[in-house]
C-alpha cells in the first residue's frame, strides 16, 4: 500500500498512521452491536472520506459484508467516498438566499470550478456543496468557504473571493 495520501493538501501525511487509528476505532466498537455508523463517522474524520480500502477494513473488522457497509455509506449524504478538497464551499439555497440569486451564484461557481455540486476540483482545492439555510438570511445571498461566511455575494464577486484560497494552496487562480 502506498503510504502517502493521494489527496492534495491533505493533512493526513502518512496513511499508515491513519490505518493504525482505524484499527483502534474498529477494536473499540467491534463487540458492540449496531455501531457501524459510529465507526464510519470516526473513520471519515480520520481519512476525510471513505474509500474502498477503508470500507473493506471496516467490513472485515466488524465481520459484516462489504455490501452492507457500502449500503450504509451510500445511503447517508454525510458520508463521502470521494476525497474532499482542501476547502469546502457551501452555497446557501435556503429560501431567502434562493430568492435573492443564490442559484445564480451556484451556477457561476460550477462554471468557474468546472464541477457539479458534491464534486471536488481536479486539483483538490475546492469541494462544492449546497446548504439549506446557514442562518444568515439577513446577508442573502450568502455562501461559506470553510468557516468563513461571505455576504451578499453576486456572480461577479466570485473570482475575487476564490483567488486567495488558490494562493493559500500554492496555485495560481485559473479564473
Amino acid at each position: 500500500m502506498d503510504n502517502k495520501c493521494s489527496c492534495q493538501g491533505c493533512d493526513v501525511a502518512d496513511l499508515s498512521s491513519s490505518y493504525e487509528l482505524l484499527s483502534g476505532i474498529i477494536a473499540k466498537y467491534k463487540d458492540r452491536e449496531g455501531s457501524l455508523i459510529q465507526v464510519l463517522h470516526a473513520a471519515q474524520s480520520v481519512f476525510g472520506y471513505l474509500p474502498f480500502e477503508v470500507q473493506r477494513q471496516i467490513a472485515e473488522g466488524l465481520d459484516m459484508p462489504l455490501s452492507e457497509v457500502s449500503g450504509v455509506v451510500s445511503f447517508y449524504s454525510f458520508f463521502s467516498t470521494q476525497p474532499k478538497g482542501k476547502h469546502t464551499i457551501r452555497v446557501c439555497l435556503g429560501t431567502a438566499c434562493y430568492v435573492r440569486g443564490g442559484k445564480k451564484v451556484l451556477e457561476r461557481l460550477q462554471e468557474l470550478l468546472g464541477i457539479d455540486v458534491g464534486d471536488t476540483t481536479d486539483d483538490r482545492v475546492f469541494t462544492l456543496e449546497v446548504a439549506r439555510c446557514i442562518g444568515s438570511c439577513g446577508l442573502a445571498p450568502a455562501m461559506m468557504i470553510d468557516d468563513t461566511v461571505y455576504k451578499q455575494v453576486n456572480p461577479e464577486k466570485l473570482s475575487a473571493i476564490l483567488s486567495p484560497y488558490y494562493k493559500d494552496s500554492g496555485k495560481e487562480a485559473e479564473a
Partner: peptide, 25 residues
Amino acid sequence: CNEIQGVGAINAQNRGFKTVISPAM
C-alpha cells in the same frame, strides 16, 4: 443472499430513486 446463505454479495446501495440492489460500491 445475506440471511439464508450468509454470503452478503448484494445489498441495497444509495437511497431514494437512486437505490439499487447491487454489490458493494
